[in-house]
Design a binder for these strands. Structure first.
Lengths: 156, 156
DNA sequence: CCAGATGATGATACAATGTCTCAGTATCGT
DNA sequence: ACGATACTGAGACATTGTATCATCATCTGG
């Protein structure tokens, strides 16, 4: 499940994220590199505690994991995701702020939901409600997992 | 801020919710009545811990508050809402499952977001993603608070 | 209307998930 | 290299939610 090419891509991606941190005036530390690499290697959604469980044995303290995740979110490299009663993060493509989360394999597909945004704006305008932020997330099965699974789920 | 008429309406509303619980084969207890009344009196979003803080001095135990909220959600009288890093509940009009939450006064406006739903479905179909659940919430300022406030916030 | 079955409560322990503090350390610009 | 300062680690602490279990209240059938 971890191909060479993908891993190389992840390494460079991690480097890019660290570079972005540097551009923001934040320092490059060994611990941040470990956290960032772990995040991009996940290639999907993750939780802070999951990271802690994974990285604490590797010498990164709980507080550091939380702080790093918080910093990455503030810079805009991570997006918070909420789903049912779980909540976590995912790496955030620039400009994209919505995601399809596959419940089976955990892959996160960023989507351009501009049609949805337009509908939201129309709705808010009609109700004279000033929408400052909105939260829009999807969960289900990606194409690959549908094929592998034979659509077991119900459709509410 | 608590007008007589509004309070009367809330009382009957609480009664209706308790009746719904009875219809589901659940028992009518003094504690549940207190919790339900507190919820409808809030007329907006609330958190479980907020309820605990309010009701524990009035003799309702923490576990009971959590259990009651859980039951109300299961029956469909409450909807979970997630916003930024807070998460809570709001009373759920039947059939409505999306809300505009005013960040200032806390009022929750249920909306019929069928246009948005259509856009979501089109998007998912185009990506061959089987969407089982989606989460759609809005936060901002209601019309009244816009007027009272003079739109202070930034617009991300 | 009473009594039994069973659903609900309370007190508390426990678990999970974050946050804070502060002394020591590493990083970066000069 | 040096100094300012941002960062880290360890653990205490805070918040949020769950499990246990003895006791009690509510509903139902006789």
């Amino acid at each position: 499940m971890v191909r060479k090419t993908a891993h190389s891509a992840n390494v460079s991606r991690a480097g890019w994220m660290l570079q972005r941190l540097a551009e923001e005036g934040l320092r490059h530390t060994e611990q941040r590199a470990i956290v960032v690499q772990a995040i991009v290697d996940k290639r999907g959604a993750f939780t802070a505690e999951g990271l802690v469980d994974e990285l604490q044995p590797r010498g990164v303290a709980r507080a550091t994991v939380y702080r790093t995740v918080e910093v990455l979110e503030r810079v805009g490299l991570l997006a918070r995701i909420h789903l049912d009663n779980r909540h976590g993060y995912t790496v955030c493509e620039e400009g994209h702020h919505h995601h399809l989360l596959c419940e089976r394999c955990g892959v996160v597909i960023p989507v351009d939901a501009s049609d949805v945004e337009v509908a939201i704006r129309r709705l808010a305008d009609a109700l004279r409600f000033q929408v400052d932020t909105h939260l829009l997330e999807f969960a289900g099965l990606c194409e690959a997992c549908q094929a592998r699974n034979g659509r077991t789920g119900s459709a509410p």
